[in-house]
């Protein structure tokens, strides 16, 4: 029964080894997709290359279908997989700020690691910026703590909030993704010649 770590199949040390191994796979596929390049990533926002959307949603759909089927088979206890608690308003504001930082800087934290590992100086400077920002955030944390922790909805999923069956939401996400992929390809054809 999975998750194996939560069922005590192995200990903390082994989980750290797995962290490295899983990270290797993560970094490999990020770089394969071209996400070590800020130009490739930023292209998403200029509509001539929608790879960010395509890769992200393919990954989400793949993992989502995986946990869904493994759950139905009774092999994975999804309630033991960690879910980040929802704080709606801080997360909406955080998403906006992060989106701006993405276009200004060209990366997100994970992709900046892939970029600096492949020699991109801007990725290295970006990661340095994340460090500086984290330091600044730690200093102002006492003043914004109230906001960050506001609006708490707990560990909650879309099927729970909308009171819909899990499978129906999964099906809807797959449909939206497939429609999104077609739309993204049309958008690329429309704006691609301006690249």
């Amino acid at each position: 029964m999975a998750p194996f770590y939560k069922y005590g199949f192995f200990g903390d040390e082994m989980s750290l080894v797995l962290a490295f191994v899983l990270g290797t796979g993560f970094g490999f596929f990020l770089e394969r997709a071209g996400f070590g390049s800020a130009r490739k990533l930023a292209a998403q926002f200029y509509l001539y290359d929608m790879s960010v959307f395509k890769v992200m949603f393919t990954a989400i759909v793949t993992a989502m279908l995986g946990v869904t089927y493994l759950g139905w088979l009774g092999w994975l206890d999804l309630s033991l997989v960690y879910l980040v608690p929802t704080h709606l308003v801080p997360q909406i504001v955080g998403g906006l700020v992060l989106g701006v930082g993405f276009v200004v800087g060209g990366y997100c934290p994970g992709t900046s690691v892939a970029s600096l590992a492949t020699g991109r100086i801007d990725g290295f400077v970006y990661a340095f910026g994340i460090g500086a920002g984290t330091l600044a955030y730690a200093e102002v944390f006492p003043w914004i703590k109230g906001f960050v922790n506001s609006n708490e909805l707990g560990q909650v999923t879309l099927p729970e909030v909308f009171d819909l069956p899990w499978g129906l939401v999964v099906f809807a996400v797959v449909l939206i993704a497939v429609a999104g992929f077609s739309a993204a390809t049309l958008v690329e054809r429309r704006f691609g010649d301006k690249a």
Binding site: G94, G95, G101, F102, V104, Y107, V125, A132, T134, Y137
Partner: peptide
């Protein structure tokens, strides 16, 4: 890139995760 990194740090901390930890 540096400025974007600073913004990213604030966004990710406000949101309790970044594009990998939250979105993906």
């Amino acid at each position: 890139a540096f400025a974007g990194g600073i913004l990213m740090a604030f966004g990710a901390h406000l949101a309790r995760g970044c594009t990998s930890g939250q979105a993906l």
